[in-house]
Amino acid sequence: MEAAPQDAAAAAPSEAAPAPEPVKADAVPPPEPVKPKPVKPNAAPTKAPPSPLDTSSLASLIDKSLPKAPKKTLDTSKLAKELNTAAPKTATVDPRAAATLAQAIRAQVAPCWNPPVGGRDVRRMTVLVRVQYGRDGRVIGMPDAGTPSGMTAANADYARAFAETARRAVLRCQPLKLPAELYDLWSSVEINFDPEEMT
């Protein structure tokens, strides 16, 4: 990059500062000399906001922002009851049970999804994220975000950012609160993120 003239305020009033020359950041690692000791309080943070899993705040978010989201799915006791009624003692899964579970997962994850709307190709893009959940409702390992649909060479950066918002939603909104007795049904989940209702 060229060394443009110095931006001395008076001398060259209209010239921009010289272009910062990009270098690899790892070529300039923070050197040793001064090491201010970071303060890492042991105590709990004083201003920690409510956990993203606070179901009451989730419910309010859903009510405000996701008009189509079911409003009562976070009542897990009721959900379990419904599910047990739906799929009580058979070896097969009642489709209604799966649908209700899917609804519950959607209601818990959607409020954490912040897709990059306004991007040129957002209308055409969806991404499927595969997640393994433990019995405690926590994500096991790193969710696997597949290649977004509608990805092209021209929008690859946008597609990557888009897929990461989906993965971030899964990571932020955990542990899931779902009926433990139906764990086998939700241990492995595929979530398709599609901003169709936002654009």
Partner: peptide, 28 residues
């Protein structure tokens, strides 16, 4: 999906992942 694919015993690990569609998030 469930009608098409044979479904399995609850005790066995689930082989077909549960499918969830999310069609809206928050603009924040």
């Amino acid at each position: 999906a469930l009608v098409a694919a044979p479904v399995f015993a609850q005790a066995a690990p689930q082989s077909t992942p549960l499918r969830v569609d999310i069609n809206a998030g928050l603009m924040q």
